[in-house]
Design a protein around this nucleic acid. Structure first.
Lengths: 235, 235
DNA sequence: GAAAAACAACTACCATACTAGTTAGTTCAG
DNA sequence: CTGAACTAACTAGTATGGTAGTTGTTTTTC
């Protein structure tokens, strides 16, 4: 496991500070299940692993705690937060609220032709991940799609909040690979979203985004059954 | 100015750690304009002011930076973020998206009688702030109203995100005292929201919440004119 | 008098040490 | 053999020192 951590550490060498680099590595590790839900961490252990002092580790833990990914218990330890069904539902609720508002705003006000073109380009690239299935790449393109849509509609804060909230959802995504939802279905949903926005059809854009955002809930019960230790006991 | 900071510091004596206490004091000071937009801060200066070490100060700065309230420039200084019209619009956009979804959810699924009663009780207490005007108290009751609505509807994450996002809006609120919007008008809007939710009228609840959330935008242009130094130059 | 160079004083970031709280393991008494 | 007491080893929180970057001031040169 430390090999994966160190591999990510090397990947993130371009970060501006040790704290930023650590934060990115630990965040990615938690989302991708390299660090498992419930796993105990400590400032000293992580500092020794990456040969840095405890302070940037501690500062990363603070940010991860803010992001709801770890729980720091004073004098006891730091624990990777288990995935909570309630937290997943809540994160989906908040993300859906924001992304639906973004889609409606984009349909109402229109998007630049260049943004529309970029969205279609991302969809073409997603299609190339569907066969053979390349989930890691699809995941990145999916994220780029939603980011481009939010920023293209002028909603930078919306994307920033969505990015934070979706960490809980991303953990479930990584747990559910191969996707319960076939990639072609997700790609169709993306296409529908862009089409309805390009047409200026506000209601259809809303419906398309809602349907898309609720897809993740379909796989949740099966995942809880397959990985009971990963999930918080409370519903 | 340091007197106000130290007064807040004394008020927050019950916090669990120095960092939590500092974070709360600094956050409240920024929101209430005790620390002005654009003002330079430093780890050492704040540490000396409160007679603590730099590390908890530094850790509070990190959280404030995450919350978009300060900007940390390595080796140069830490600055209270100026209010940005764009940031205010964006924060309002995100908050409206979330709170409208909460209101609809509450209207669809219904709220406990106890929650409805608590909301009406808060409205009664708000009325007592309207004449004579007690803006500080109204502000707290307004916040309690929205928090009770979100938590009562079961949307804890929604409230957590809203609370973070609304910091930018709260700064504008404090700048605009006395309220551009008369308190009775805001109270009427709160009443309308609860009535439509209690009736289970989803569409009316949505409209009522949208109207309420857009109220803050009415005062923005006048505030920019009155306090040009508080606002970021970029639109 | 103006411009360039040198210097001092500030900053945030990182490293290390100390302290108090918590838990697990060991020892001792009954 | 069991339970209580003690101890060691861990933890996070806080304090302090060192370093590199940045900026403002002072000095020197032309």
């Amino acid at each position: 496991m430390n090999n994966e951590l160190l591999a990510l550490w090397d990947d993130c060498a371009s970060e501006s500070s040790v704290r930023q680099r650590l934060y990115r590595v630990l965040r990615q590790s938690i989302i991708r299940m390299v660090l498992s839900p419930g796993q105990a961490l400590s400032e000293k252990e992580i500092a020794d692993t990456f040969d840095v002092s405890r302070q940037p580790v501690r500062e990363s833990f603070i940010r991860l705690s803010e992001a709801g990914l770890v729980e720091v218990r004073p004098q006891r330890g730091t624990y990777v937060v288990k995935v909570s069904q309630a937290a997943v539902h809540e994160a989906r609720f908040v993300r859906e609220a924001i992304e639906v508002a973004v889609a409606k705003s984009a349909a109402e006000q229109g998007l630049d032709e260049a943004v529309i073109a970029e969205l279609y380009d991302l969809i073409e690239r997603q299609k190339r991940c569907a066969s053979p299935s390349d989930y890691d790449r699809f995941f990145l393109l999916d994220e780029a799609f939603h980011r481009t849509l939010s920023l293209g509609a002028g909603h930078h804060s919306a994307w920033r909040v969505t990015e934070e909230v979706k960490a809980q959802l991303d953990r479930v995504r990584y747990l559910s690979v191969p996707e319960t939802t076939p990639l072609p279905k997700l790609i169709d949903q993306h296409t529908r979203i862009v089409e309805t926005i390009a047409e200026g059809n506000v209601e259809a854009a809303e419906v398309a985004m809602r349907v898309h955002q609720r897809e993740i809930l379909h796989s949740l019960p099966e995942l809880v059954a397959r990985f009971p230790d990963m999930f918080d006991a409370k519903s």
